[in-house]
């Protein structure tokens, strides 16, 4: 059985243009422990911090709720985790339309079949996906949708933001992993394939020297339901989801998995700097 062990260090720093006196936030930066992934250790350091509490949210993500009182001009979050990824034997019969279209499946996966603000796309775009997948079984349809998305969208950072909708990115023809994922979700859901958003990290260089930190960033990919379980697929990169992918959070779209959200007291602006470093440990 193949395994990979990593250390992930994710630092987010918020610099405010003036001192703020309080903030209440939630952090989703702790990798999951589940089949195929074990988080051996995870530390979240926050400066300054007054109080925190941890829980698992509706989607199973590890959340740290935090509160900072007292004047501060910057908030620094650093999540350092040691994660082991291992292969799982996943032999399953291929997905069928019958299974996916059954009342039971459609009902239980309702949340992952709905197109909401972030994943909604124009009629003609959705029709295009349907055409590309015409006559194909679910597995091949997924590939067809991913191909269509990769055909249309160019990977280009700096054009879109965390709040960009799939329809907006599609109109631009450019985006980052989040936009690729939202567009893919729109296509898959339109076809009746339940699909969800996965956020986490991707080790960019699987053959990196052990012990050598590699600069990386947050990554997002898709999982679709084949009638029995969830199958991962990475629409942004032309490669399958592998042991290089580390999952942190799941949801219907970006809103459910945002690594950091909350409010602060005051009307100062904030600047965000993010650094992600991944080190192969084995």
């Amino acid at each position: 059985m193949s395994t990979q062990r990593y250390r992930v260090s994710h630092t987010s720093t918020y610099d405010y243009t003036g001192p703020i006196s309080a903030s209440h936030n939630e952090v989703r930066m702790t990798p999951l422990t589940e089949e195929g992934q074990t988080t051996l250790e995870s530390r979240l350091r926050i400066r300054p911090l007054t109080w925190s509490n941890t829980y698992r949210d509706y989607f199973g993500t590890h959340v740290t709720a935090l509160e900072t009182s007292g004047f501060h001009e910057a908030l620094e979050l650093e999540a350092v985790s040691t994660v082991e990824r291992y292969d799982v034997d996943r032999e399953r019969p291929a997905a069928t339309w019958d299974a996916l279209r059954s009342g039971g499946c459609r009902d239980r996966c309702f949340e992952y079949l709905e197109l909401r603000r972030h994943t909604e796309l124009p009629e003609d775009v959705l029709a295009g996906f349907a055409q590309a997948a015409a006559g194909l079984d679910p597995t091949a349809s997924v590939a067809a949708v991913v191909d269509a998305v990769r055909d249309h969208l160019d990977y280009e950072p700096g054009v879109t933001q965390a709040t960009t909708l799939a329809s907006e990115a599609w109109a631009e023809g450019k985006g980052v992993c989040q936009d690729f994922v939202h567009a893919t979700l729109g296509g898959l859901r339109h076809l009746g394939i339940p699909a969800r958003y996965v956020s986490g990290y991707l080790m960019p260089d699987a053959d990196a020297t052990i012990g050598q930190p590699v600069t990386s960033e947050s990554h997002a990919w898709v999982e679709w339901f084949d009638g029995e379980g969830w199958v991962p697929v990475d629409p942004t990169n032309d490669r399958p989801v592998s042991l290089a992918h580390i999952a942190v959070a799941r949801g219907r779209d970006y809103e459910d998995v945002a690594p950091f959200k909350g409010v602060y007291l005051g009307d100062q602006d904030a600047d965000l700097t993010v650094t992600v470093m991944i080190t192969r440990l084995s």
């Binding site: 949210d57 509706y58 989607f59 009902d107 309702f110 949340e111 709905e114």
Partner: peptide, 17 residues
């Protein structure tokens, strides 16, 4: 049906559990 629960605008996942 599960749909009736999850599609309700008043179903608040923030308090699940």
């Amino acid at each position: 049906p599960y749909e009736l629960i999850v599609s309700s605008t008043h179903f608040h996942r923030a308090v699940s559990g």
